[in-house]
Design a protein around this nucleic acid. Structure first.
Lengths: 162, 162
DNA sequence: TATTGTTATACTCTATAACTATA
DNA sequence: TATAGTTATAGAGTATAACAATA
């Protein structure tokens, strides 16, 4: 009974933190009254990482959602003038998403909101611990980019994976 | 330009991880076909931590959601026979939530699902790193139990908190 | 036929507000 | 009046499925 399931406990804490992170971020966003939601904020920040305007499908992959979800987010952002849909001349099926000037301005405010949220969430940690956490998160997030297991229910569903 | 906003980057990674954790947990839950959702699973696990059946309000506080949200979750769990609403004889306003035998059985399966999800999420980390992460999460999650800032907009909303 | 994005639809999760029944 | 939980409602977020346009 010393530690029957350390990873499970870890997962539970992660889930708890996860919820808190979302709630705190949401509150900070609402406080700025930018009229954008957490998911839209994430898309906007993701957009800033690209050198040239990405396709909808690129964003879906990066955000780890289905393309349909991106449509909704871009709809909202475009309605507020933060991004622009631009047809790709080389392939007329493709739509590229561009950041507008207003989008860039919003992004600056977003960074401030994100910093404030980070401060609140990370308050219990010291400098050294934040560095540690940062490294661990980098490993976690960038580590497994591959798909989880698409090959259906061939694997026994009850396999606990101990 | 060396590291203009380490906490902000940390927050971004945290947000990204947040989504992934949720998605992976959801997939593992669906795979078991227990008919319970991630939020219900969390409530069930939380329930197991109590020595005696908690009130709805206790659960709301522990789960960091409004009481109304607990009602929905308990409705679902009760419909599936996992929990039972028991009126408190001492205070007839109070309802206590009890785990049923079936709920306990489900909980065992849930632990397996959680472990499997944890394995997948934590795959990129070694033993030592998991321990580190565990400690950091404990500090983060249990650290700031107090309310964020209930006293309204008296504090300047734009205060970035640097 | 495969790819890209969309329209249509549905479900989970959570919030606020107003109400009921206690205390 | 304050507390505990509920009914009513709304919105964010995301999924699957069917479809149109293009390749």
């Amino acid at each position: 009974m010393t530690a029957p399931d350390p990873d499970g406990l870890l997962a539970e804490q992660l889930l708890r933190l996860t919820r808190r992170v979302h709630r705190i971020q949401k509150r900070h966003l609402e406080r700025r009254e930018l009229g954008i939601t957490p998911a839209q904020s994430r898309l906007l920040r993701t957009l800033a990482h690209y050198g040239s305007p990405p396709r909808m499908a690129d964003l879906a992959e990066r955000l780890e959602v289905v393309p349909r979800a991106v449509t909704t987010l871009v709809d909202g952002l475009e309605a507020h003038g933060k991004v622009r849909r631009v047809p790709d001349p080389a392939n007329r099926r493709v739509i590229r998403i561009e950041l507008t000037d207003e989008g860039r301005a919003t992004l600056r405010e977003l960074r401030a909101a994100r910093r404030a949220a980070a401060s609140e969430i990370l308050a219990p940690l010291g400098e050294r611990e934040r560095e540690q956490l940062g490294e661990l998160l980098n490993t976690l997030v960038d580590g497994p980019p591959g798909p989880p297991c698409e090959e259906g229910a061939a694997r026994r569903p009850g396999d606990g994976g101990s």
